[in-house]
Simulated scan of single mutants.
Amino acid sequence: MDLDSFDHQILDLMQQDARRTGTELAEAVGLSAAACLRRLQRLRRIGAIEREVAVLSDAVTGQRVTLIVTLPLNRGRPDMRARFREYFGKLPEVKHLYHVTGGADLVLILECRAMEDYADFAERHFRLEEIAGYETNVVLQTLI
C-alpha cells in the first residue's frame, strides 16, 4: 500500500477513536476536512482499514474477563490455520485470533463472563488433538 505520513497519522487517530469527524482529523493532521475524509474513504477502499468496531462499555455488557491464550500446535497439516480460523471464528468468546511466531502458533483474545466460563471454554475447545497445550494470561487492567 502506498501510504504517506498523513495517511499514517489518520490511521493512528482512527485506531484511538473511529468516530472522529473530518474536522477533528483536519485539526490533528493539518489538512482540510474534505482532504481527510477523501483519504479516509481511500484507506477503507484499499483495505488499510479492514473494519470498524464498537468497544462496548462494561456498564452495558457487565464486567467481563479478558484472557490472552497461547496455543502451540502439533505439527503436521498445512490447512490447520484455516481450520482453526473457521473453528474459533464462530465462537462468541473469541474476539481476536492471531497466527504468531515464537513458542506458540496461535494467540486468542477471549472475553468471558467469569473464570468459570473460561474453564468450561478451555475444557471444550482446547482438547483438540492438533493443540499441544495452552497457556492463559488474564488481563488485570486495560491501560490503553
Rank of each mutant, 00 (worst) to 15 (best):
V94Y: 00
L71T: 06
T136S: 09
G103F: 01
L143R: 15
M80H: 05
L128K: 10
E135R: 14
G30C: 07
N137F: 12
R44W: 07
P72T: 03
Y134K: 03
I109C: 05
L37D: 13
E50N: 00
L110F: 04
R85S: 15
G47T: 07
A122D: 06
E52A: 09
P78Q: 08
E135V: 08
A28R: 09
R113S: 10
T70V: 11
R75T: 12
D17R: 11
P78M: 07
M14D: 02
V55I: 10
Q15K: 10
L37K: 06
T66V: 07
H125T: 09
A18P: 10
E24T: 04
M80F: 04
V60A: 15
D117M: 01
A132W: 02
A34N: 14
G47Y: 03
I10A: 12
L128N: 07
R64P: 09
D17G: 01
R124N: 10
R85N: 15
V65Y: 02
D58I: 01
L110W: 05
K95Q: 11
R83Q: 13
I131R: 00
A114Q: 14
A122G: 04
E129W: 06
D4A: 03
A104H: 02
D2G: 04
P78G: 04
D79W: 02
D7A: 03
V139I: 13
E116L: 00
G103V: 01
I144T: 15
E130Y: 03
L97V: 01
D58M: 07
V55C: 05
A28P: 02
L3C: 06
I49M: 10
D117E: 14
R77E: 15
L67E: 13
D4G: 09
H99T: 12
V100K: 04
L91I: 13
N137T: 04
M1K: 04
V29F: 09
A26I: 07
N74L: 06
Y134W: 12
R44E: 12
A54M: 14
R19W: 02
A104V: 02
T23D: 15
V53Q: 13
G133S: 15
S5H: 09
L71W: 06
L110C: 08
F6M: 13
E130F: 01
L3F: 04
R124A: 13
L13H: 10
Y118D: 09
G133F: 09
